[in-house]
Amino acid sequence: MPVNPRDLLTEGAAMRLAGDHVIGYETDGASVLLGDAATVIIADPRDGTDVSGLGSSRRFHLHGPFVGDVGARLFGRPPDSPEGSWAQRPDVRPVHLLTRLPEGHLYLGVGKPEQTRYTHGCLEYAALTIEPQLPRS
């Protein structure tokens, strides 16, 4: 299903972006869905760099903690992982970013993982660049 930034999706349509065999993870203010086709991150509409969601027209913040799969999908293995090295490439499947609104889920674009912070093997924070950049309005 092709989607464009600023498209309004139902919850079911947003979840279908992930594809089959979806595993869901929840954190305060955000849901992360890992599926065969993509990663889908749906955040509540909150402002600030200390909460998950849209930080600016170019930046999306995700706050954990998330163990295992979410960090590996976005960034490859953490530095202390016995299964691989930090240099291992992240997954090539797209990361779709959405925000929840009363009228549906607003599609923001594709997220490119840029920054991360791990604590004791758990993904605590991730910053993703939104592509294409959203209009300032």
Rank of each mutant, 00 (worst) to 15 (best):
A87Y: 05
M1S: 14
D69L: 14
Y118W: 15
G55T: 06
P79W: 12
H63C: 11
G111I: 08
L17T: 07
T116Q: 12
G48R: 05
V92D: 12
L8Y: 03
D91F: 10
H120S: 13
H63A: 00
Y25W: 10
Y107K: 02
A72G: 07
H96S: 03
R46P: 08
D36R: 13
E131N: 05
G76S: 10
A37K: 15
P102V: 09
L9W: 03
R58M: 10
P2E: 15
T119A: 14
T99S: 04
P135E: 11
T129M: 11
R136I: 15
Q88K: 11
S81C: 15
T99Q: 11
G68I: 06
S57Y: 06
G53E: 08
G55S: 13
P78C: 09
T49Y: 12
W86M: 12
V95G: 03
T116E: 14
E124Y: 00
I41V: 15
G29Q: 07
Q115Y: 10
R89K: 13
T49P: 10
L101Q: 15
V40K: 04
D80C: 03
E124T: 06
L108C: 09
G84C: 07
V32W: 02
Y107R: 05
S81L: 02
Y25N: 02
H105K: 04
Y107D: 03
E103V: 12
S137D: 15
E131C: 01
N4F: 12
G111H: 06
G12P: 00
D69F: 06
R16Q: 15
L101F: 09
S31H: 08
K112T: 15
I41D: 02
A18S: 12
L98R: 02
H120T: 03
R77C: 07
T27M: 00
R89N: 04
L123M: 01
P5G: 05
R100C: 09
E26H: 09
V32F: 08
H21N: 14
G48S: 07
L17A: 06
E103C: 07
S85Y: 08
G53M: 01
R117W: 09
L97T: 05
P65D: 00
G48W: 07
G29L: 04
Y107S: 03
G109M: 11
V92M: 09
A127C: 13
W86G: 13
T27S: 14
S81H: 12
L101Y: 03
L9C: 08
G68P: 09
P2Y: 07
G19E: 06
F66R: 01
A14T: 13
H120M: 12
T49V: 13
P79R: 13
Y125G: 01
P82I: 10
